[in-house]
Amino acid sequence: MSLVFRSKNGEDGTVTYVRYMDRIRDYYVSQGYEKPYRWAHFEEVPFTPLKKPLSESKVTLLSTSDVSVRRPEGEALPVVETTVGDVYSVPWNTPVEDLYSRQESFDRYATSLDDLNSYLPLTRLEECVESGRIGAVTDHFHNVNRGYSQKLMNDTSAPVALEKCRDERADIAVLTPV
């Protein structure tokens, strides 16, 4: 196969950040998928200023890392954890060693998902509470079961995520896509 990777870095020897939209398009064309993905794009971007100082704010954490609580072998995951587009919650105070990521879409050649705090900074944010940098964290962190449909994300995931934030009276959300 003589596919030209337009998105490869370094034509002039420089290495910069990866253009994933180009790279992924080229990759899937090479794998025989014909219809290129249309990435979400907006001219207008919403913005909400902080309502109170960080030191008085409650922070929540949302991720697409598909982190679950370890279960005995053979025990099925709750349906909400595998339903595409849904959002599920896990108690924040679950010991980190009892959690693991089921996510398979990451660069497994370059890194691992063995250390949760490298993509789901639960402990790092707890430290920020201890130091007084932020007021509190929510009782749960939340996972968005990523889908490829922007309609699904807009009509289901985003409103459910908002509901979760409101239920826990989160003032701020930190989002970590994996």
Partner: peptide, 10 residues
């Protein structure tokens, strides 16, 4: 790399 947005593991 995708998978470590919040820093290198450990």
């Amino acid at each position: 790399p995708l998978g470590s947005p919040c820093g290198e593991p450990y």
